[in-house]
Design a protein around this nucleic acid. Structure first.
Lengths: 109, 109
DNA sequence: CCCATATATTGCAATATTACGATAGATATA
DNA sequence: TATATCTATCGTAATATTGCAATATATGGG
């Protein structure tokens, strides 16, 4: 149905899935990479850098923002986006824990 | 259009996005957690453990498998799923590098 | 105030995802 | 062989996502 049964999962599972979904698009990966690379947070040069239309970029930025991964500050006419350090660190930590839960190649099948 | 312009991104960006998308669903997070927890790779007890129908679980397993994150071995009538250690380690490493690229709260905006 | 520039929002069209019932296939056991 | 069990696939309904043109909004300069 295209509708996820969120109610049967823990809030942790839902939260992690939501964060991952926010990142799970090449354009959003590219946007995050750009924001990180140009240490200062670039604005709407993104539309030029990547080959997507301005509304499309705006929409991707909105998704990253609503996930809490980035923040935007209005700077005159432009908007300045950068990583939201707390959410970034938290997600990094959570993912680390998730991946570490499976140790080594001591497998069964 | 619901269709991602994969051709304008690097294969690395596409690969990472694909892996993240494979994990970006609470049911698939839950499945991975179960597979990891019950160290031996459980099979279709998953449908019972989580509250989803068997075809739904089967579909999620297929997605995780086609992303290469898990592998399934036929064991009589049942199928035994477990983490694919190589892909798991690689993704862990890639994500670590990705998150580490942004250092500290020395931000701009 | 008018205009140019930067960004957000709206409204689509095309496709993808999620979930499940029904059913098929495959294997063990009686 | 017949039957029960486990898993995969098919088909379908109900959303969700992606992308963009058109348009709205907001800010600074003249």
């Amino acid at each position: 149905m295209g509708v996820t049964k969120t109610e049967i999962f823990t809030s942790e599972q839902n939260r992690l899935a939501t964060m991952l979904k926010a990142m799970a698009h090449p354009a959003r990966i590219a946007i995050l990479e750009q924001i990180i690379k140009s240490n200062a947070c670039i604005c709407g040069d993104l539309a030029e850098e990547l080959g997507l239309a301005q509304p499309t970029i705006s929409q991707h930025l909105k998704e990253l923002k609503s996930a809490g991964l980035i923040q935007g500050t209005i700077d005159g006419v432009k908007v300045c986006y950068c990583i939201e350090p707390k959410a970034w660190e938290l997600l990094h930590k959570d993912l680390n824990a998730f991946f570490k839960a499976h140790q080594g190649p001591a497998d069964c099948c």
